[in-house]
Amino acid sequence: MCQKCNDEMQYALMKVNEHKSIIIDALEVELMDDIYAGSKEGLHERINTFDSNTKLFNEDAPEKNVIGEVLVNPDFPDDIKEHIKNNFVEKLFVTYRPDKAFHEFGLISIDFEDNSKEDIIKFKAVIQTDFDVPKEDFCNAITGFVAYGNLSKFESLLNRDFVLSFHLAE
């Protein structure tokens, strides 16, 4: 699985271990390299440093209409549309941006296209965020995922069932 634009891959499927794979964004691969560089003793501190630099959710941030695709972890066994609608609307999400920081945003609402194929799940959503969202460009799409409250942002990245790949709607 990958999404290619001008010979550059944005998404790939990465095997974490024998029983777990994750969908990963090219920018997130750099994050992993930064976190795993150095000794194992400092690993927890490096993860905490990235978390402490997170751009927190701003309740006064503007709402933005976005469109995109849900990329599903192939290990996820259930109906992802129902999973998202029942568990993650009006929840906190996060993305790792080119400024080398996590940015939180809110998923206000999401609607799935009825004609989505099984492996391509298109959606329209309203998010609330301060960061810039690119227009009509899946080659530089935002990769959003659930920010689990009991996990670091990096651990949330490693444990996600899906990612929202999106850009501004027209």
Rank of each mutant, 00 (worst) to 15 (best):
M1F: 06
N6A: 06
E8V: 06
Y11A: 07
Y11N: 05
A12G: 12
V16C: 13
E18C: 06
I24G: 04
I24V: 04
D25K: 02
L31E: 00
L31F: 01
M32W: 03
D33H: 06
D34G: 05
I35L: 03
Y36S: 09
A37P: 03
A37E: 04
G38T: 07
G38S: 03
G42H: 10
G42E: 11
L43S: 06
H44P: 13
H44K: 13
F50Q: 05
S52W: 04
T54H: 03
F57T: 02
N58Y: 01
E63M: 13
N65Y: 08
V66E: 00
V66I: 08
I67H: 14
G68A: 10
V70K: 04
V72I: 04
N73F: 01
F76W: 03
P77N: 14
I80M: 15
I80S: 15
K81S: 06
I84H: 12
I84L: 05
I84F: 15
K85C: 08
N86T: 09
N87P: 00
N87T: 00
F88P: 01
F88L: 06
F88C: 08
E90S: 10
E90Q: 11
E90G: 11
K91G: 05
K91A: 10
K91V: 02
L92C: 14
F93L: 14
F93W: 05
F93S: 02
F93H: 02
F93K: 05
T95W: 08
T95V: 04
Y96P: 00
P98E: 10
K100L: 10
F102E: 12
H103Y: 05
H103P: 01
E104K: 12
F105I: 14
F105G: 02
G106L: 08
G106V: 07
L107G: 05
I108E: 12
I108A: 08
S109M: 13
I110F: 04
D111W: 14
F112S: 14
E113K: 09
S116E: 14
K117N: 07
K117D: 08
F123V: 09
K124H: 10
A125G: 14
V126A: 10
F131C: 00
D132S: 13
V133E: 00
P134E: 15
K135D: 12
E136S: 13
E136R: 15
D137G: 09
C139K: 03
N140W: 06
N140G: 08
I142M: 04
I142A: 03
T143W: 10
V146C: 04
A147G: 06
N150G: 06
L151M: 07
S152N: 15
K153E: 15
K153H: 14
F154Y: 15
E155N: 12
L157Y: 02
R160K: 14
R160T: 09
V163N: 10
V163K: 15
L164Y: 05
H167Q: 09
E170M: 11
E170I: 09
